[in-house]
């Protein structure tokens, strides 16, 4: 009696499935609950991976409820790669369709924030552009092209995701305001963090990421947001190490 890996996999992921015959203990008796060790290892290890990967969602949903949610997700969406650092890419979309949590409308975007922070953590290193690179004549500045560091991610949300993140990670943070928020995740050094972007900031960064000049990015941001504050977003981007010089080659 052979036990194929397809059969084994099916029984591991389905707690109601019978233990495949052909699996036994040392006395040749049916394996019984010994098979549960594998079931448990798979579900618990994937649940823990999800919990580590989505700390904000885990906090918002709460321990037991998160475990139940994770048990559904990991069975429906097992990892597609042995790189657990990438697990959960479709978790935000899954949450959008998950009926029991539909009332927490901002949850999928919180999952996106968690996901982008993790992507930022593992992104390639790049030296930030030094502030003096921007100390040039205005006519040179508008034609300057800067890149976004590989660890930069932008999230534009109809929800106050940055406020929600602050309230759940920083003591004494104010209650979220009922506003849409754009967030930039950047990684000065090795620890990524989200920064709240001023209006038009996401558009400006997105333009730089697409290879436009500072001047072109500024015009696009102004077109989107009439009172776009270039100095504010530029300071933020420089301080957070979000900008790199595309002409500098990293060792």
């Amino acid at each position: 009696m052979t036990v194929s890996q397809a059969r084994f996999r099916e029984a591991v992921l389905d707690p109601a499935a019978a233990v495949p015959p052909g699996l036994q203990d040392g006395q040749r008796a049916p394996a019984g609950n010994r098979f549960s060790v594998y079931r448990n290892n798979v579900i618990v290890s994937l649940t823990e991976a999800l919990q580590t990967a989505f700390p904000l969602v885990a906090k918002l949903v709460g321990g037991d409820r998160f475990s139940r949610l994770a048990a559904v997700y990991v069975r429906e969406h097992p990892p597609k790669s042995p790189l657990m650092m990438h697990y959960g890419v479709d978790f935000p979309a899954f949450l959008e369709g998950f009926a029991p949590l539909q009332h927490i409308g901002y949850l999928p975007d919180c999952a996106r924030l968690d996901l982008l922070i993790r992507q930022s953590y593992h992104a390639a290193d790049a030296p930030p552009v030094p502030a003096e690179r921007l100390q040039c004549a205005p006519e040179d500045l508008v034609t300057l092209r800067l890149s976004l560091a590989p660890a930069v991610r932008i999230l534009r949300s109809p929800w106050p995701v940055h406020d929600i993140w602050r309230m759940n990670t920083q003591e004494g943070a104010p209650k979220p305001r009922p506003v849409a928020q754009d967030v930039m995740i950047a990684r000065p050094g090795f620890d990524p963090a989200p920064w709240l972007l001023p209006p038009g900031g996401a558009c400006w960064l997105d333009c730089l990421g697409r290879g436009l000049t500072l001047g072109e990015a500024h015009e696009a941001a102004l077109a989107e947001t009439a009172d776009f504050d270039l100095a504010a977003v530029l300071t933020l981007a420089l301080q957070s190490g979000a900008l790199t010089d595309p002409t500098t080659k990293d060792g």
Binding site: T2, V3, Q5, A6, F8, R9, V12, L13, Y38, N41, V42, S45, L46, A49, P78, P79, K80, S81, P82, M84
Partner: peptide, 17 residues
């Protein structure tokens, strides 16, 4: 051990006959 079946990675070291 094995851990991948189809496109799925099960994140455990599963046994072999």
């Amino acid at each position: 051990a094995w851990s991948t079946h189809g496109a799925e990675f099960l994140n455990d070291l599963l046994p072999l006959p």
